[in-house]
Amino acid sequence: MRTYKQVFSELKHAALIPFFVIGDPDIDSSFEIVKAAIDSGADVLELGIAFSDPIADGPTIQKADIRALDNGVTVAKALEFIKKVKAYKDIPIGLLMYYNLIFQYGLEKFYEDFHNAGVNSVLVADLSIDDADEIAPAINAAGLDTVFMVTPNTEVKRIELIASKTTGFIYTVSLLGVTGGRQELSDMVRPLVAKLKSVTDVPVCVGFGVSTAEHATQLAKAGADGVIIGSRLVKIIEKNPGDTAKAVTEISTFLKEVKTAIAAV
């Protein structure tokens, strides 16, 4: 199974990490979309399991969660989905989700089942480093990498603690706020990436509000090891209801543009 370490050591440019909600707008279309993202140059996949109350997400991802849930996605179906993706290509997969779904599934079983399906890490949006000990035994037993968030208001001492518990990458939140497309890149992000780079060797990937090839280029230049693009892609799905082929084309075109741009940095 391909690891984050392999990706970050082999790549000569920042990793392209698209995010989708599993089963958005439905399981079959979602698989077509993810395949297209892989074919368009994704280096790592970030996938969400829909939750009824996503407090860290803006309107775009909220709507994606609702579409997926309305079309019947469950945690069990998400597990099957991941197996199918891994059968298509061995690409590292990070999950991004909320704690209650893991808690109900059972911690040990969740991490074991999803690791066996090919998941490399699970970032829990509503679980900070303070509660890492609650999930650490199950993660270690299953052998997953860890990914935690750092935000522009995280203090340096805390960044060091987070870095010391991170084996995958630091999910760097570019701004104070929820997920969603933005016109401009937050002016907080470049100093944050620089600060992270000065205190840790753990790969730094940036997400939240990364919406254009230009944003991705700026982040790559600032030293980011990866760029995570979510809402911008999910918006394309939202705008093409019932027309998966069109969504696939638009997403492919956009991702290829971003890939070309960051590869040139």
Binding site: D126, D131, E155
Partner: peptide
């Protein structure tokens, strides 16, 4: 945090990192 905010197994502070400083 100085306290864990627990009542037995209940409570805690399961929030996104961005809210921890507040």
């Amino acid at each position: 945090m100085k306290h864990d905010g627990r009542f037995g197994e209940f409570g805690g502070f399961y929030v996104p990192e961005v809210l921890i400083p507040a």
